[in-house]
Design a protein around this nucleic acid. Sequence first.
DNA 1: CTTATTAAGTCAATTGTCTTGACTTATTAC
DNA 2: GTAATAAGTCAAGACAATTGACTTAATAAG
Lengths: 401, 401
Amino acid sequence: MNDSRPIRAKSGTNHEGTSAHNRRVMIDALRINGALSRADLARATWLTKQTVSNIIEELERDGLVSSQEAVRKGRGQPSTPYRLVPEGAFAIGLQIDRHVTRAVAVDLVGSVLVRAEAGLPPGGPSTGAKVILDLVTGVRSKLAAIVQQSETRLVGLGVAMPGPFGIDGSGDDPWMMEAWQKFPLLETLTAGTGLDVGLQNDAAAAATAERMVGAAHGLDHAICLFVGYGIGAGLILNGELYRGANGNAGEIGMALLFADGKSTPLEHRASLASLYQHLSADPADPDLHAHIDDLALRGDPSIEAWIEAAAADLRWSIHLIETIFDPQTVILCGSAPVALVNRLIAAIGPLQPSTAERRGRTLPRLQPGMADPWSVALGAAAGPISRAFDPHFAAILKDSR
Amino acid sequence: MNDSRPIRAKSGTNHEGTSAHNRRVMIDALRINGALSRADLARATWLTKQTVSNIIEELERDGLVSSQEAVRKGRGQPSTPYRLVPEGAFAIGLQIDRHVTRAVAVDLVGSVLVRAEAGLPPGGPSTGAKVILDLVTGVRSKLAAIVQQSETRLVGLGVAMPGPFGIDGSGDDPWMMEAWQKFPLLETLTAGTGLDVGLQNDAAAAATAERMVGAAHGLDHAICLFVGYGIGAGLILNGELYRGANGNAGEIGMALLFADGKSTPLEHRASLASLYQHLSADPADPDLHAHIDDLALRGDPSIEAWIEAAAADLRWSIHLIETIFDPQTVILCGSAPVALVNRLIAAIGPLQPSTAERRGRTLPRLQPGMADPWSVALGAAAGPISRAFDPHFAAILKDSR
DNA sequence: CTTATTAAGTCAATTGTCTTGACTTATTAC
DNA sequence: GTAATAAGTCAAGACAATTGACTTAATAAG
């Protein structure tokens, strides 16, 4: 009667899945290539002109694309290019960091329209939850004041915070994020905002941002090495962010390095946390960012030793990433001060020989990405936009909603 | 006139894509769960009973599934389970290794029906190509002698050989595979057999085999650490083998380890090549495999030191893999003698603490996979089967054929 | 033993989405 | 001025999943 081992199977699909995918493909094509005519879209997507026409018409009705002036380009009827309408959709992004929380509102093309920041009191979620919810609500209403219809076009709230997720705290977590991990954050935010809420770690968010508006734009295989308080990698594989079985893929900071006869997590050697320790600085100091920027810019000796050591570790990490993932490019980004990231990139070169050194490369092996305190919040917001509009396998399937 | 930067876009899909996907989903469900009724399939795939009926009927006509005796399981009409028909499809797998080449014929469910082996003369492709082609032809005709209609049901020829691919040889490649890399192998085999030919590296092939019939069966996130002449990882991510931008993902053997003040590729420390060197053995010796098996079984001191050192490196590798990929499980497999693999697994434990240590785990963090000289050839054959019958994103799209 | 209930599976009509092929429109090349 | 070329539309058609009623075959309940 009750044999019931559950049956595992992938979901099937139907007409709606087909249609949804084709809509996403159009949006993706316009995002990558800029404005395109219906004929261009048909050629690029392998769909018929008629199908493209139908979908474009529908997207235009939905306010997601709009036509531009016709362009003559040789013989034949002039083509009418269509472009993405930035105001076609919005998302809120929320970054929760150790001492600060940031929220942004972005549009369909990834422009930041509203940004707001707040300090996080040391009490953890018990006092911090209200701060966060207020911040989100504030950004949301500022967005509504700037653009009409933003509420109906809000596709979700993306949250980014340091991972890993779902791990039993070791008790000696030096970064105090453990309490946040245990707090039912997503449920609280869902209840408090009524929005679709998604979570990713900060490196994944940075990668999502790079893919939407940065160095990974249009790439299907790219790894973002994110240097923040910790260090992590955002994995873009087959054109999608890879999350792993439990959402913890890319937590490279915990990779072990052997040096001086002992093994140390990468994170303890190359991350802002390690720099703060090296400088005996207080991470909660609001002027620290500017101070480090200044030190890096001046090439202050107090920071040079750390840069050299961190660059060596990053050079190793990049080699490892190239070896394991075989990406089109590696992108170095972070919440670190810009000058520091620039110094790091300079100090990393030249890279180790690797399988990435191939004839016919068009992209550099290592590229600088965003180094902006707001990039993680932007990536957090890019999450819901991507989920709603980018083509991906799960979006075709029946059980995906 | 000629503005022509090429337009990049993902392919759209249509009814055929939908239908093809749903067929694959059925086959996948039967492969993972064993025989299932139409009603079971409908529930598991989210498709309607009617749709499932239509597809099953078609698959039965095509000889890919067949009904079993009806089973009564409580109230209601008895259900008729359907199972995969092993003889529904076949593929040839070819492994090209340094001194030997192996070919197998497998059926839809991954059973090996024919196997053949040949030594590879030292001359490289110039003399080896004929040996290989003859081996494949021999296996193919033996298959045809065993089962009728095998030729019409042959979905392809999968080739596995050591990677990485497409790299400019450094000239001092100690493994002599470079000449093979430059040889137009796929073209030669396509021309010589008329079959669809696909290529993967040996670790990827091992992972493909594990996924079809081994420890990764039914898993969507698993990493196979493959210890052979070199060492590599086969990456199963989101239910598919991940190849990277250039087909070289998982070449972990080139990852650098720091020890004794210098950096060494993992491959030089933990691989059969390093063991051969440790033992001053000749890799071309046909009795070497059995000899090492014997040494490992007896716990011979000449091999124990190597085992301890290699186990330490593998322990580190497993930690790294868990950290970076967040898989459901890690599988240790190889073309090494079984006793050696068993000794390695024993010597690896206990594993390092990692994010993989979570409550509610059901799978072991590390599992033994196949350690069989034929597993790579099997995986090579599993490649075409998987390409033809497993659900994956590319199979839905219009440009995939 | 009879009847109700439950579940598997089928039938026939319908719906949704892409495709096809002919057609219209607008422009440049000769 | 005419032919060639390309963008885009129209209307009918094809394909594959869906829907809801129906049939079949078993067990459970009275």
